[in-house]
Design a protein around this nucleic acid. Sequence first.
DNA 1: ACAGATGTTAAACATTTGTTTATGATACTG
DNA 2: CAGTATCATAAACAAATGTTTAACATCTGT
Lengths: 226, 226
Amino acid sequence: MILNMRIAKDDLRAVAVIRETAMGLFAERGAAAVTVREIAAAAGVSPGLVIHHYGSKDGLKDAVEGRAIAFFEEMIGEFARLGEEGGSASLAELFAGRLESEPAMVDYIRRLLVDGGEAASGLFARLLDATEAGMRALAGAGVVRPAPDERIRTAFLLANDLSLVLLRRQITQAVGFDPLTREGLGTWSAAVIDVYTSGIFAFPAAQQVPGEAEPDEQPLKEGHNP
Amino acid sequence: MILNMRIAKDDLRAVAVIRETAMGLFAERGAAAVTVREIAAAAGVSPGLVIHHYGSKDGLKDAVEGRAIAFFEEMIGEFARLGEEGGSASLAELFAGRLESEPAMVDYIRRLLVDGGEAASGLFARLLDATEAGMRALAGAGVVRPAPDERIRTAFLLANDLSLVLLRRQITQAVGFDPLTREGLGTWSAAVIDVYTSGIFAFPAAQQVPGEAEPDEQPLKEGHNP
DNA sequence: ACAGATGTTAAACATTTGTTTATGATACTG
DNA sequence: CAGTATCATAAACAAATGTTTAACATCTGT
C-alpha cells in the first residue's frame, strides 16, 4: 500500500476538523447537550459526514475522549520523565505550554475529570503515582521535608495544581488574569511558592490556633469544649 | 388563608421529591443527559407531573439550580459570619457537615462550578471576597503572615478547598477515604495544616531550588539559560 | 354529601435527534 | 480519458424527547 494517501497529514482534514470542533463544543456544554447538527454546522460540514466518519455520535465522543486521554497520558509521561531527570516543570506549566497549540484541550480535560468517565478515573491515580514518586525522590534528596503521610500530602498538592484547570474561569475572573498563561502562571506560582515555602501562619508554632475561616483546620485530634 | 395546606411540610411531597431526584440525576450525568421520563421514573411519578409542577424541563433545571445556589449562598453567609466571629470552621468542614442531610448537593455544586452557569460564576467571586476578608482579619490579628498579594493567596487557598469538592471521587479512590466525611476530613486537614504551617521544603531558604515536579515553580522572575 | 380545588395519570402530539440511503462531486490511477 | 475509490451532501426515517390535553382520583370546606 502506497503512502500517497492524504492521511499523511491526517490533521487539518475534515475528519480532524470535526473531532476538534466537537471537542470544543463538548468541553463548553457537555457532550449530551451538543447535537450532531451543531457540530456539523460549526465544522462546516454536513451532519451525515460526522456519522460517516465516526460511525455514530458515541463513536465521535469516544474519539474525542480518546484523544484527550492520550494527551493526558503523554503529559503524565513527560511529567514523570522530568521528575526522574530532576528537570523543572510543574503540571500547570505543562498545561500552560500545550494550551497554546490546543486551546480546547484544557476545557475538555476539566470535563473529563468531573464527568468521571471510567477511562478518566484512572488518570488521576496515575498522575498521583507519578507525582508521589517525584516527591519521594525529592524527599530522599533532601529538597523537600518528609511528610507524615506522603501520599495524602501529594494528593493535596496535586489537587491544588489541578484546581487551576478546574477553576480556571473563576480564578481568571476573580483575580484578573489567567493563571494558565505563561505570564499569569508566573504571578500565580509566586504566591503558591510563598505558601509552600513559609506557610501561611505568622507563628509556625501556633498552628493549633482555632483560626477561623480559610485553612482546613481542626483535625479533630483534640476536642474543644463548647 | 388558612394554614391547613399540606405545604406546611413542603418537602417530602412529590414536588420536592421530583426536585431532589432531578438534582441527583443532574449531578451525576448533567442536565442535558437526563430525560424527563427518567426523572419521573426515578421519582415514582408520571412524566406529565414533572412538567405540570415546573412548567418545563428548563423550569425544573432552574428550580434545582436555584436551590443549589441558595444553599451555596447560605453557606457563604455562614462562612463569612464565622469569620467575623473568629469562629472555627473551614469551607470543607461546612460542606462535610451538610453533606449528610443532602448528599446530592455536593455533587451538583461540583457541576455548577464547572458548567459555569452565569448565576454560578459569581459564587466563586463572592466566596473569595468573604474568604479574603477573613484572611485580612486574621492577618491583622497577627495569626497569619501577611501575603505579598492577599487576593491571589486567598484565591489559591480557596481553590485548594474547593478542589476537595471537585475532585472528591478521584481523591477518595486514590487515598482510600472520602475527605468530605467527618473522619476523612480530619486526616486530610492534618496534611493540609502541615503544609500550611511548615511548607514542603526541607530548607525554607532554598526555595529557589529548581526542584522538579510537584510544586508550581519557576516564577520566571529569574531566567534560566538553556 | 356535594362542589370544587388539587394532585396525578395515560395517551396523543409536534419537534428534535441520531442515523440511513441514495446520489453527486473530486481527485488519483492505469 | 475512463475507472474507481474517497469525500461529501441532501433528503428521508425511525426513535426519542419535551410538552399538551383530557380525564381520573383524592381530599377540603361548607
